[in-house]
Nucleic acid binder design. Sequence first.
DNA 1: ATAGGGTTAG
Length: 519
Amino acid sequence: MLYLQIEIPKSKYSNCFRNEFAIPVLMIVGQNEFGCSNFLRRKRKWPQIPYKGRWQQTFNEQQAMETLKKTAILDESDSNPKTHILSTLINSFRLYGCDTNPSAYSFVISNLAQRSLFSQLPTVLDHLENIEKFETPERMFTDLIRSYGEAGMFQDAIDIFFRIPKFRCIPSASSLNSLLLVLCKKRESLVLVYDVLMRSLEMKIRLEDSTFHLLVKALCRYGKMSSAIEILNLMEDHGCIPDSKMYSMILSSLCKHAGSVEVLHFLEEMLNAGFTPNGSEYVGVVTILVKEGRAKDAFDVLNRMKREGVKPDIVSYTSVLNGFFSVGDFQKGEQVFDEMLVMGLVPDPFTYSVYINGLCKQNNFEGALKMLVSMEEVGCRPDVVTYNVLITAFCKVGDVGKARELVGKMHLQGLQGNLHTYRILIDGLLSAGDVVAAFGVLVEMLNRGFVPRSSTFSSMVCGLCVCCLPHDALQVLEEMVKRSVAPEARAWEALLLSSSFSPSCTETLLDLEGLTAAN
DNA sequence: ATAGGGTTAG
């Protein structure tokens, strides 16, 4: 049915309806059983025609709702409305001679919640509970619980949930879920979940897959992994079946929040349940094994992937490669690298950085530089990390000349150094005793907005003092204080010693020390 | 289908 609202002059038809507003009259157009003219002619006969009674009742209820909504809107602009919205609700429906209905209460409750007028809710709810006779739709409570949650009123959310039966409504998993979602929003309210679940079971609410799903999701988010697994195992008792998504969530979260033992154990459980992790979930497993120095086990997982029909990608190979190199098993690393190529995988800058780092660790600098050239030859552009790896290696062996050369090469390729580049280079130059060059790089670093570590700053101060440049040293110290980096004791000592000949320096120094102490 | 997941330093 298509409805069209038009305004009819009040004087002519004001007896149609008991409405003090300008009355919008519903004209029915298109296909309907009344027709426009019938509608107006038969208006007085409606009460006598029983089969049209329902239509009229609906119509009156609509009119009452309109009045209620209009008044509510008027009240919204009024900062201090005179009447309680419950009175408006009752009056609007009384005006049209019809009974209040669930939609009216839904409107009033969501209206109050939207306007954060929670203090008015108890009156409305009491009336709904004690005076009304209709069965309240559960939807009203799920919405209200969500609103309480958004307002941080967790206890009210809990209270209304347990009060649902008093409103002639049988609570199901949907209102339980809405309450659980509220309680899972904050870590502190998680402790209330258990009690709510127990009481829900007493109320004979049937837990659904969705209930377990949201609980597992929340527990994973907070890293409460043993609880998440416990919930997963509880599902069967309630006639629910975990899906692959839940296993995936737990596996990925375990990689973040637990150790490799738990991860491997759960991986077995997941596979036994008939679910296969996807590529990135496997990467997580490989990565945690590598992080714990279990390169061999990581490699086993790689082979496990192949057996499960998941092709290991460049990321998992790079991780395993890194695993073998970081435990010093270079032979196995080389083997993995070759296997990766055989598998048709194309190394990317990550892979090359790891590989070059491995070569450097073996002191094979020639090989590392060759690798840099060959990656470029195959069209893989080295990135900042690739250069940082090489710069670190050359700084470590004291070849700062080569390190600076690499920085130059990097710049030529349009690559800017990052925070690490500067830290590595300055530390390297200072260890090599090239204080002046280090000072130059430090100035550039500060100009680019990077903040050196306290140790770098302090070494710089000491270095400048040794070179009899106390004024520059003092300047560096000032820059530190400006950036809230606390100087190490050796920096103060070096400066105090070297500035003992210059009273003005000492004065500035004491001021700075006071400033630092105040911080 | 996509991206992101994997690298240095400490």
